[in-house]
Design a protein around this nucleic acid. Structure first.
Lengths: 321, 321
DNA sequence: TTGTAAGCGTTATCAA
DNA sequence: TTGATAACGCTTACAA
């Protein structure tokens, strides 16, 4: 049978309040009863019920991280960063992959959330946040006084990467984009276009290919590139997965990288270094850590909703000469 | 202000029970009130409190997955498999990375758990399970009528891998082991030793190196191997991470793989295929899926605690000739 | 079809 | 130092 606080109280011959006080480390209990109660909890295998507790206290000492993109395994680094900060600050981390994690946000099941999944729409977030529930969003900027945005600066490193390519003398460029609605992709593409314009290198929309950030969509796009009469010198991809997909096509077709075509990515995923892919490294552990820090600060009283931009760094490897 | 069921009730001019009935899809409410209540919930931005609910009903329609090994990013595939089954069966998935996730197991915050983290000791699990809380453990076998174990069959594929190596004519073998307390490592090593004995190939304990499953420990072990006067023909590693660490040493030292030394791993992690590592593929998505299925079946009434062994498959790639 | 009232397991307030 | 009691937000008999 389930044992509750009242069973312990009865066994110890004291009231529920006393047991509660002991369990919560209050100082107004005699050493004798304190010890007796601890022993009873042990032998009864008693464990306080978190629902009951948070129903009463409206807090949980837990934060939530919401994501569902299993395609990008380097996201695990974000979880690690969040976990690191949370654990050392006395918060549990709960990761929720469901569409419907709204129910873990409200209800004081968690004290705040870090949101990555785009299925959590801005509307839902605004609705939850306006009740005073702290939220940090990653990879998008929300103009909401209750929600803190942490985004990666895509534009600056992509500009640096592109300038480097132009300086190396590459003349013709193709771009393999991700989902066009994402801010990430827009910024990366804008930097691409801007540098070409700045250096007066022509670019035709024919050399824009669109994917969905998955490896397969890079594979498909590269197949199409292979069909065209003249291949570009460089294929600039909006992320690593697609770049790796494209490289697979080139390898299969005997097209050498970087001799016949150079390839770049974005993310610095796990495979990027071993594959020698030139890319932009996003510090995932660090942004997880930072997200947790800001969230917990906001939970504990601060109010800071200023958007934060994280720097990323170009990694030059073997896929460009 | 926080709005609760009684606020909706008051606004609608009905009782809490009626609102509750509407929200839970009971059929005993008139269409008119039903609609009115739905509208009010919307406009009041009302969301039922899960703590209150599960306190009353002692169930949550959620399962928990507990792990904390961020070093093995292919574990994410397990999460994906669990999520897949859970989601299509109406359960939420909560992943908890804390030492202390016991509190999410008891309390009807979740209806059952899948446990991977070794910090969750057998004792704790037994204590929780004996209260009728369904548990599935991965990677260890517990002899407990309430706990279902799902493990990978390490012995059989490692035997196959070893026989293949012997058949190829390799003569001298070294083994790079993981933490010696883990069942995984023991089984893999036993298969290694057994095949050598079976084929009458001598093996000296001098060629056993011990690591901790991390890349770095493979790197260190290989450094030591490099110092010895005669290198083995093959380095059999208890997992991929260590094999990759060792390969890094060999590459840096100009030792060719597989010409000068062959290397094998275990896991088929993300890097294994692109690096051409010969290894054993563990079907992670599938075991996550299976774990979720058994767990949810047990939650919903079945009682099945028979240990389950999952097959793994040898993948021959370029790191052996 | 709707309402009343009890209770889930805690903690907080206040009085003893 | 301890205890009685109310309250947190919800569900569920049962009564109306």
């Amino acid at each position: 049978m389930k044992v509750g606080i009242k069973d312990i109280a009865k066994a110890a011959g004291v009231s529920k309040s006393t047991v509660s006080n002991v369990l919560n480390g209050k100082s107004n209990v005699s050493a004798a009863t304190k010890e007796r109660i601890f022993e009873l909890c042990q032998s009864y295998n008693y464990f306080p019920n978190a629902s009951g507790r948070s129903l009463k206290t409206s807090q949980s000492k837990a934060i939530l991280f919401n994501f569902s993109d299993f395609d990008r395994s380097f996201y695990l680094k974000i979880v690690e960063g969040i976990n690191d900060y949370a654990e050392s600050n006395g918060y549990d981390l709960i990761v929720c992959t469901s569409k419907s994690c709204e129910k873990y946000m409200r209800n004081s099941m968690t004290d705040g959330s870090i949101i990555l999944d785009l299925r959590m729409t801005n509307d839902i977030l605004a609705r939850v946040a306006c009740e005073g529930y702290p939220i940090v969003v990653l990879d998008r900027v929300l103009d909401n006084p209750y929600i803190k945005s942490i985004v990666v600066d895509n534009y600056e490193p992509m500009t640096a990467l592109m300038r480097m390519l132009v300086d190396k003398g590459y003349k013709s460029y193709a771009f393999l984009g991700g989902p066009e609605s994402t801010e990430d992709n827009q910024e990366r593409y804008k930097a691409f276009v801007d540098v070409l314009a700045e250096r007066q290198i022509p670019f035709s929309k024919q050399n824009y290919f669109s994917g969905d950030y998955r490896e397969k969509s890079g594979y498909k796009a590269a197949k199409i590139i292979m069909l065209s009469s003249e291949k570009p010198d460089v294929l600039v991809c909006a992320n690593d997965n697609m770049a790796l997909g494209a490289m697979r096509v080139f390898r299969e077709a005997g097209v050498r990288v970087p001799e016949d075509i150079a390839v770049t990515g974005f993310d610095d995923c796990e495979l990027a270094r071993p594959m020698g892919l030139t890319t932009v490294a996003i510090p995932n552990f660090e942004r997880g850590y930072l997200a947790a820090r800001h969230l917990i600060e906001n939970i504990e009283g601060t109010t800071n909703a200023e958007a934060l931009k994280i720097k990323a760094e170009v990694k030059i490897r073997k896929t460009v000469r």
